[in-house]
Design a binder for these strands. Structure first.
Lengths: 219, 219
DNA sequence: AGTAACAAATGAACGGCGTTCAATGCCATC
DNA sequence: GATGGCATTGAACGCCGTTCATTTGTTACT
């Protein structure tokens, strides 16, 4: 009656040379490699299938559609980005340096993995699903990473702190986007790191100055 | 021998109900409308042809390919954006207010024409043509718009001024991107305008403060 | 051993895409 | 009227995402 035997339920498949989990990983790895090599535009179900030695239909046994695959790849990328920034922050002690290093880590990740990074933000879902999916949650987690040091540096809290974190993070993001897509003419030796430092430093100075003059009335 | 007659060379066409120029405009208008209605993903040669009453092949008599069409639509969009920001700046006198209004105009344009605006930055060319095309030139013109007031406010010039303009403009751009793509959780009543004001104001304060402490030694 | 049951995987098919190009149709001219 | 020649067509190619009836291989039970 019951299917309990000495073989685990995961290997119940008939022709399966791979567990569902293994196959799922294969697909995601192949998809990620295609994105790395040729960008989001280079991703196709047929290309994935070719690379893993299956047919396109197999992908649809494990994922709802290609968007679903992309979402999973992007989730992995954002996890890696999260870990990278977290490590960068952990290396520093002073909140100010933590913020600077976080920004630099973000930029460096985007520059090291341009196609994976861009896929996270270029991928446009169909009109549906306004609800915050996995991706949006992960992006919020990225922003949360800088909340603590930003609170220290700016002496703000609550909504003002949230706003500052979002503004700062968006700003760095904008620099990455425009630089990676070559929309900014980088004349001379000015590099993306300089722009990032410029933005973060001046923003933080201004933020601290504004707080000092409005929030705290002084001791 | 020569084709000179009482009819202008533009109407030499045989079955043509439209001048090449008219037909080109028809195509661009239809393409723009498709982008407005359904985003870049909603654009296709067949859809354009259907809307203007021609066949897909006709498009290729006037444009090299669909990318070429998109490039032209984007150029128009950036021209409109340029005019919009320029008008916003012209309404103000003080450089600081000019910068704030320029940022707000940018945001407002992106919010009013989200699909057209996004098309300018989502469109990814094939690996070729690194050379600065029309689009990049127009983006540089946008940045140039804020150079004069920024020079006033910041008391900087040369490379430092360029860097400040790029950093500030990229920051506002990043806010637009993340907001329009709903990657930022906009909790409470915080809106994109508040974020923009926040970024611009604090950045400018910090920029001016840094200049005062480094560049000019003070009278 | 034989067989029934069943899941894994296939591959053909559908409609749509960008793009090309020989063939067609229309017009101005001779 | 015949002719030359360009504007336009529409069929075709090879790609795409996605679906699903069919096949195939494995297990479980007789």
């Amino acid at each position: 009656m019951n299917q309990s035997s000495n073989c685990d339920p995961l290997s119940m498949g008939r022709r399966s040379e791979h567990t569902r989990r293994q196959l799922s990983d294969l697909i995601l790895q192949a998809a990620e490699q295609l994105i790395v090599d040729h960008g989001l535009a280079g991703l196709s179900a047929r290309a994935i299938a070719r690379d893993i030695g299956y047919t396109p239909g197999t992908i649809y046994l494990l994922f709802a559609n290609l968007d679903d695959v992309i979402l999973h790849v992007n989730a992995r990328t954002l996890d890696a980005l999260y870990a990278y920034i977290k490590a960068a922050i952990a290396k520093e002690r002073s909140p100010l340096r933590q913020l600077m290093q976080a920004a630099r880590a973000y930029v460096e990740f985007a520059r090291t993995h341009p196609n994976r990074w861009r896929a996270c933000f270029e991928h446009r879902l169909p009109v549906d699903v306004a609800g915050p999916d996995d991706i949006d949650v992960r992006i919020q987690q990225l922003i949360d990473l800088i909340m603590a040091p930003l609170a220290d540096v700016s002496q703000t809290e609550g909504a003002a702190l949230d706003a500052a974190a979002q503004a700062l993070w968006s700003g760095v993001h904008g620099i990455c986007i425009l630089t990676l897509t070559h929309k900014l003419q980088m004349v001379g030796g000015r590099e993306i790191e300089h722009l990032t430092d410029n933005l973060v430093r001046h923003y933080l100075v201004g933020l601290a100055a504004s707080d000092a003059s409005t929030d705290s009335m002084g001791p």
